[in-house]
Design a protein around this nucleic acid. Structure first.
Lengths: 146, 146
DNA sequence: TTAAACTTTGCCACCGGCGTCAAGGTCAAG
DNA sequence: CTTGACCTTGACGCCGGTGGCAAAGTTTAA
């Protein structure tokens, strides 16, 4: 299939896909006319790429990680990849706990400062976990289903 | 105290501190000669700033959030701040679950590909969670939704 | 006095993923 | 043929925190 199809089937922009390709993350053939020709495989692959990116890895990291996901019998760089992944996991865990701490502090402060019970949506109290707010006159930037 | 002292007492670079100051995050007096003069308070404040930044907020968000942390009786912009914070929390939660998924996949693949037991440190197997070196974040099983 | 160590402000560089032209090739439909 | 959708490569822009450099003033040590 060609870029735009892959694009709409994955949710990534054609630009992004070419970018992945350019960085060797996305194997593609070329048709006689020079157009990229992606295999069905690519869909799965793009999903993986985006997942890894969403985690906070950069393209280079992703490139290292991908061969660990089978389908080719690569046996090489998974070593370093694991370490990177492990590092990312640790980072995120750290962020999480920092976040929790912050949320606690904030919630505590807000309770003091609270004063009059706002006429706000009562389902959203500062000391209750996320519950996924779906609002926004803001930008359309929604994160995918991951 | 002056920048460089605050810098080495907080771990931030003088450059960064001036940046925070320039953006109104870090209140400072000026000495007769024009040098910045930070109060002891600043140390705590910088810690907070960096914590928020580490979470993934930007300076503007941090600026909104800081007055919610007491010490001044500010009563204003915590509203939007809360929303931002909530959004960040959601993002991080998403990353976390993505991370967990990835770890699972990676671990699974590696089991297949494993072959000969590498002569690596046997304490670190790819399918066991981080285990955290020092005072690491808890392995909390709480919000698994999303 | 003079050099060294600090300070100030201001501006430019960088990173990285991708948006966004721009200039041009390909191809099916009218 | 022409139009228009789709493709190609290449280049520039952006964001935002920070590094780095420059020019200039201050303070301190020798």
């Amino acid at each position: 299939m060609r870029v735009s199809e892959l694009a709409q089937r994955t949710g990534a922009s054609p630009r992004a896909l070419r970018h992945y390709d350019a960085n060797g993350l996305l194997p593609s053939q070329r048709l006689a006319n020079g157009y990229r020709d992606f295999p069905e495989q690519a869909i799965e692959r793009v999903r993986r790429i985006r997942l890894l990116l969403a985690i906070g890895l950069d393209l280079e990291d992703v490139a290292q990680l991908l061969p660990c996901f089978a389908e080719t019998g690569e046996l090489t760089p998974c070593d370093r990849a694991q370490e990177r992944l492990r590092g990312q996991i640790a980072d995120i865990d750290a962020k999480m706990s920092a976040l929790r701490a912050t949320r606690r502090m904030l919630a505590g402060e807000l309770r003091q400062w609270a004063g009059p019970p706002a006429e706000r949506d009562p389902a959203r109290s500062p000391d209750r976990p996320p519950a996924e707010h779906a609002e926004g006159p803001r930008e359309e930037r929604r994160h995918e289903e991951l």
